[in-house]
Write a protein that binds this DNA or RNA. Structure first.
Length: 446
RNA sequence: UCCUCAGUAGCUCAAUGGUAGAGCAUUCGGCUGUUAACCGAAGGGUUGUAGGUUCGAGUCCUACCUGAGGAGCCA
């Protein structure tokens, strides 16, 4: 079937993302996105469009686009979805360095003026913003935080993948308390009665490490504790490496290299976002090995000198962690905590059984504990003793004891909460902004 | 669970116990380089809920509801 030759069709401009704008300088392109803001005067309008990859200032001059198109642009409402055609041009006056001379606008769905986009350019309260989290995500700061989070997660995976670790994900539905300490979310589970949402993958990691060598798991973690602070979520993401044939020093070495590499990666990949967040990047550039290593004993003395009420044997409060971290320009490693305040599986120091071979990494600037970990008990009899001391049901831990029966080796690892890491790197107050849909004690919607 | 604070227009906040107001958002008008644009006008209210004190309550008292910050616990 043939058509009579008429005028050749006009070349269709390429559809590009805002991120690609610099590669199309001087060319006519199509941008698909949402109207972020609109400034206008009588004969010129500046629609600012976002498409998920960035923000682009556009310019529509009445004399160029024509009366009818200009009128349509003038009345566009916030967050209307649209397709803009125009020529890209480098311009210092535009916030992103590039702007588009609009030739045509096609509205995909217009936001009704009777029910305008609720989040305005002015300030809002936390309650309102969290109720509208599904829309709040569109704002510049939230967009920047989630892009940093994405880079952190990629950096975490790349670090372990390139360091000889195998990803072995651990179950989210678990039969009982893994550590017997924190409160768990209970869910009905067929004839078995109840299952509990995982609060850590570590115990399973100890099994997979004996099968695979160096392993890590990376997934959501659940704590049903009624914590109500800027550092807590009930659902958060945690990465947990576990290694056979290592001691506490090896674990601290790994934690150091790991955090250094994650921070370096974000500095490299997310300059724009850190700028949007007004993060003082010099505070991140100083995050280089080696990190100071301080024993719990010395940490307690330092804290007492600084006026803390802490006594040897007690755990650090948030104020203590801030006090400890404030003298350093990088994270610090505090090691060898009193055995009594640590989990049942912590390996005691053979030269001083009253302290355990555990380590916490405390972030600077008051962000608190970033990493917690240490060496695990590898001796069968000692582990049985600890289970008894902690009044944990032995039957539930038979499989865990098996690991000490069939070729046990010294081993250990740590866990890092992704949200605390992202909050620290971004320099934001509250972990709730570091995850798309935060789950907190009094908030589960949207 | 405990302590502290807050709730007024769609949003952010004012209002000595005496007529509920401003900015933003929305609508209309003006403006050719704006940067949270600006200027003028309009519409928009059961002051979280229930009770109480008072001639009179957004304001004072009691209880409750909702939320925030912190403590404990933790990453």
């Amino acid at each position: 079937m043939s058509h009579p030759a008429t005028t050749p069709p006009a070349p269709t401009p390429p559809v590009i993302t805002i991120q690609q704008a610099s590669r199309y300088d001087g060319r006519t392109v199509v941008i698909q996105g949402w109207l972020h803001n609109l400034r206008r005067s009588g004969k010129i309008a500046f629609p600012i469009v976002r498409d998920g990859t960035g923000f682009l200032q556009c310019v529509a001059v009445k004399a160029q686009v024509g009366e009818e198109t200009f009128e349509r642009i003038k009345h566009l409402t916030h967050e209307t979805s649209l397709r803009l055609t125009g020529k890209l041009r480098a311009d210092e006056r535009a916030p992103g360095g590039f702007e588009m001379d609009v030739e045509d606008v096609q509205v995909i769905q217009a936001v009704s003026p009777d029910d305008p986009f609720p989040i305005t350019p002015k300030e809002h309260g936390v309650d309102f913003l969290l109720d509208h989290r599904h829309l709040w995500l569109r704002s510049r700061l939230q967009h920047a935080v989630l892009r940093v989070r994405h880079s952190v997660i990629r950096a975490v995976r790349d670090f372990f993948d390139n360091d000889g670790f195998t990803l072995v994900d651990t179950p989210i539905l678990t039969p009982a308390a893994c550590e017997g300490t924190t409160t768990l979310f209970e869910v009905p589970y067929f004839d078995e009665g109840s299952a509990y949402l995982a609060q850590s993958g570590q115990l399973y990691n100890e099994a997979t490490a004996m099968a695979m060598g160096k392993v890590y798991c990376f997934g959501p973690t659940f704590r049903a504790e009624k914590s109500k602070t800027r550092r807590h979520l009930t659902e958060f993401w945690m990465v947990e490496p576990e290694m056979p044939f290592v001691d506490l020093n090896d674990i601290m070495d790994l934690a150091e290299r790991f955090v250094e590499s994650v921070v370096a990666r974000v500095l490299d990949e997310r300059k724009e976002e850190l700028k949007t967040l007004e993060r003082d990047v010099s505070k991140l550039e100083s995050v280089r090995r080696p990190f100071p290593r301080i024993s719990y004993d010395d940490a307690v003395k330092t804290l007492q000198r600084k006026g803390s009420e802490i006594q040897w044997g007690g755990d650090f409060g948030n104020a203590d962690e801030t006090l400890l971290g404030e003298d350093y320009d990088r994270p610090i490693l505090v090691h060898r905590f009193p055995t009594e305040i640590k989990a049942f599986y912590m390996q005691p120091d053979p030269t001083r059984p009253e302290v355990a071979l555990g380590v916490d990494m405390i972030a600077p600037e008051g962000y608190g504990e970033l990493i917690g970990g240490g060496q695990r008990i590898h001796d069968y009899d000692l582990l049985v003793e600890r289970l008894n001391e902690h009044k944990l049901p032995r039957e539930a831990f038979e499989w865990f004891l098996d690991l000490r029966k069939y070729g046990s080796v010294p081993h250990g690892g740590f866990g890092m909460g992704v949200e605390r890491c992202v909050a620290w790197i971004c320099g934001i107050e509250h972990v709730r902004e570091t995850i798309a849909f935060p789950r907190m004690i009094y908030r589960m919607k949207p």
